[in-house]
């Protein structure tokens, strides 16, 4: 990223869960960088490891089952994987904010909205109760909630889904973090509300100069909000690059399949859609080689599936154009 130090640098992150059936690796050697003020999208289908990546960055993995096995997460040069619990508590909310999918579960139902925002402000900025509440009103106003002085005294259930997500955003931004991680922030919302929330996030991002990691399964949301994209498949990065590189010149056959299978407003009606054959391998049966290979439409894929390299060799990443990286296995790449 232009030689300047990235705000966040994830290097070879590997996260596993210990289950009754044994250890499963949910994130397997994920690397990416994020520049200050930019927006990075992490896209993939359920189980691809996009949320676990976010939880690993924030040290929010369920304990003791979840563990980061290797790799580093450098945030302004500091390795968050090695940071103490106390240090992480100071970073979360203060320097890195979080927005979750379901605002109702992210908010405490028995506390007034204003108190929940003020709490995070007084913890991190040491303001007294009165001043923190004034700030809360100010922030609610910033996230576009009408009559904020009334709303601070209401409970989450009194607000609509869109309003609740605005409150969650307000809490995440209360301390003006440098980075916000948004995990499916609009998935539970209707399209018209989604449009409002995305617009809000983008304008606040500009205003506050923060970087955003947007985790979503929706390629439309990625295309509209992100500058860079990481495409994940079965715990690994299939491809990463700028949003135009990924959408206009996809190099991984999974990305191509994904882009082709979404119904668009200009795709032909009443005609079969393109699909990706097969399904994602189970976590216990992950191949060592290119994980998309069993579903790859590559003409000579049989060759690879029977080869020793599929069984033993994990493909690395190759840079196909400046900043555009793809899994280094010709059987899952565009010819």
């Amino acid at each position: 990223m232009d030689g300047s130090e990235p705000l966040l640098s994830v290097e070879d992150l590997t996260t596993a869960f210990d289950t009754d059936a044994g250890r499963v690796t949910a994130v397997d050697g994920v690397s990416f960088d994020l520049a200050a003020g930019s927006t990075l999208g992490i896209v993939g289908e359920s189980g691809c490891g996009k949320s676990v990546t976010a939880m690993s960055i924030m040290s929010l993995l369920p304990r003791p089952a979840g563990k980061v096995l290797s790799g580093s997460v450098l945030f302004e040069g500091e390795d968050l994987i090695q940071a103490s619990d106390e240090r992480m508590q100071a970073i979360r909310g203060n320097e890195i904010g979080m927005i979750f999918q379901e605002p109702m579960t992210a908010l405490n139902p028995v506390h007034k909205v204003g108190r929940q925002i003020a709490e995070s402000i007084s913890i991190h900025e040491g303001l007294n109760k009165k001043n923190a509440l004034d700030r809360a009103v100010e922030i609610l106003k910033m996230v576009g909630i009408p009559a904020p002085e009334v709303r601070v005294d209401e409970y989450p259930h009194q607000l609509s889904g869109g309003m609740r997500q605005r409150v969650v955003i307000a809490i995440a931004l209360a301390c003006r973090p440098k980075l916000v991680i948004a995990d499916e922030p609009t998935t539970a919302l209707d399209v018209t509300v989604q449009a409002q929330i995305l617009e809000l996030l983008q304008s606040l991002q500009k205003e506050l100069g923060m970087a955003v990691i947007m985790i979503t399964h929706d390629l439309g949301v990625i295309a509209e909000t992100c500058s860079d994209v990481v495409v994940m498949y079965a715990g690994r990065v299939a491809e990463r690059g700028s949003v135009t590189q990924i959408f206009d010149n996809p190099q991984h056959l999974y990305t191509v399949g994904l882009l082709n299978s979404i119904p668009r407003l200009d795709s032909p009606r009443k005609q079969r859609l393109n699909t990706i054959d097969g399904h994602v391998p189970g976590l216990m049966e992950m191949p060592v080689g290119a994980r998309f290979a069993p579903r790859s439409p590559h003409p000579r894929i049989g060759e690879y599936l029977n080869s020793a390299s599929f069984k033993e060799q994990r493909p690395g990443m190759i840079e196909v154009e400046a900043g555009h990286w793809v899994e280094d296995c010709s059987y899952v790449r565009v010819d």
Binding site: A195, L198, A223, T244, D248
Partner: peptide, 10 residues
Amino acid sequence: LLSAIPTPDP
């Protein structure tokens, strides 16, 4: 409603 749909085209 139509204008709110995010399009997968940057």
